[in-house]
Computed example of a mutant assay.
Amino acid sequence: MATGSWFLYLLECSGGSYYAGITTDVQARFQAHATGKGARYTRAHPPLRVLGFREYADRAAASRAEWQLKRQPRGRKLAWLEHGGQ
C-alpha cells in the first residue's frame, strides 16, 4: 500500500452484512474494528474479513467513492468496488 494514499474498504460482518469505510491503512483499520475500537456498527456486528479495497489519491476522492458504494444495492457492492465504480 502506497504512503499517503487513501483506501475505500468493504468488510463482511457477522450476520453476512457489509460495512464500508475509508482509511490510510486497511489492515490497521480492520484490527481496530475487530477489537471493538472501530465504528459503532462494527462493534455491534463484528467484522469477519476484508472483502476488498481500492486505492484513491486523496481523502476527498475516497469519501466520494464511499458515498457511491454505500448507494449500491447489497448484491452489487463487491462488484462495484472491484471494478472501480463502473
Rank of each mutant, 00 (worst) to 15 (best):
residue 1 M to H: 12
residue 2 A to Y: 06
residue 2 A to Q: 11
residue 3 T to A: 15
residue 4 G to M: 12
residue 4 G to C: 13
residue 5 S to Q: 14
residue 5 S to P: 07
residue 6 W to D: 04
residue 7 F to K: 02
residue 8 L to V: 15
residue 10 L to N: 10
residue 10 L to C: 08
residue 10 L to D: 12
residue 11 L to A: 11
residue 12 E to V: 14
residue 12 E to S: 13
residue 12 E to I: 11
residue 13 C to H: 07
residue 13 C to A: 12
residue 13 C to Q: 10
residue 14 S to N: 06
residue 15 G to H: 08
residue 16 G to Y: 11
residue 16 G to C: 11
residue 17 S to K: 09
residue 18 Y to V: 04
residue 18 Y to F: 15
residue 19 Y to Q: 12
residue 19 Y to C: 01
residue 19 Y to G: 04
residue 20 A to N: 13
residue 21 G to Q: 04
residue 21 G to I: 01
residue 21 G to T: 04
residue 24 T to F: 04
residue 24 T to N: 04
residue 24 T to D: 07
residue 24 T to V: 15
residue 24 T to R: 01
residue 24 T to W: 01
residue 26 V to G: 09
residue 27 Q to R: 15
residue 27 Q to T: 15
residue 28 A to I: 08
residue 28 A to N: 04
residue 28 A to T: 05
residue 28 A to V: 09
residue 28 A to C: 08
residue 29 R to S: 10
residue 29 R to H: 13
residue 29 R to W: 10
residue 30 F to Q: 05
residue 30 F to C: 05
residue 30 F to G: 04
residue 30 F to D: 05
residue 31 Q to G: 00
residue 32 A to I: 02
residue 33 H to T: 08
residue 33 H to R: 05
residue 34 A to F: 10
residue 34 A to T: 00
residue 34 A to V: 01
residue 35 T to P: 01
residue 35 T to I: 02
residue 36 G to R: 01
residue 36 G to A: 00
residue 37 K to R: 15
residue 37 K to D: 02
residue 38 G to R: 03
residue 39 A to L: 02
residue 39 A to D: 15
residue 39 A to E: 15
residue 39 A to K: 13
residue 40 R to V: 06
residue 41 Y to R: 03
residue 41 Y to E: 02
residue 43 R to I: 06
residue 43 R to N: 07
residue 44 A to W: 02
residue 44 A to E: 14
residue 45 H to D: 02
residue 46 P to F: 01
residue 47 P to F: 01
residue 47 P to R: 11
residue 48 L to N: 06
residue 48 L to I: 12
residue 49 R to W: 01
residue 49 R to D: 02
residue 50 V to C: 08
residue 50 V to A: 05
residue 51 L to M: 14
residue 51 L to R: 13
residue 52 G to C: 01
residue 52 G to V: 03
residue 53 F to D: 09
residue 54 R to H: 13
residue 54 R to K: 11
residue 55 E to I: 00
residue 55 E to M: 12
residue 55 E to F: 00
residue 56 Y to M: 00
residue 58 D to C: 06
residue 58 D to I: 09
residue 59 R to A: 14
residue 60 A to F: 00
residue 60 A to E: 11
residue 60 A to R: 02
residue 61 A to T: 04
residue 61 A to Q: 10
residue 61 A to F: 04
residue 61 A to E: 07
residue 62 A to W: 07
residue 62 A to D: 07
residue 62 A to Y: 09
residue 63 S to V: 03
residue 65 A to Q: 05
residue 65 A to G: 06
residue 65 A to Y: 05
residue 67 W to T: 12
residue 68 Q to H: 14
residue 69 L to G: 08
residue 70 K to G: 07
residue 71 R to W: 07
residue 73 P to Y: 00
residue 74 R to G: 05
residue 75 G to H: 09
residue 76 R to D: 10
residue 76 R to A: 15
residue 77 K to P: 09
residue 77 K to T: 05
residue 78 L to I: 14
residue 78 L to A: 15
residue 78 L to M: 10
residue 79 A to I: 13
residue 79 A to N: 07
residue 80 W to D: 03
residue 81 L to Q: 02
residue 82 E to F: 09
residue 83 H to P: 00
residue 83 H to R: 08
residue 84 G to L: 07
residue 84 G to P: 08
residue 84 G to N: 08
residue 85 G to L: 11
residue 85 G to A: 10
residue 86 Q to Y: 12
residue 86 Q to R: 13
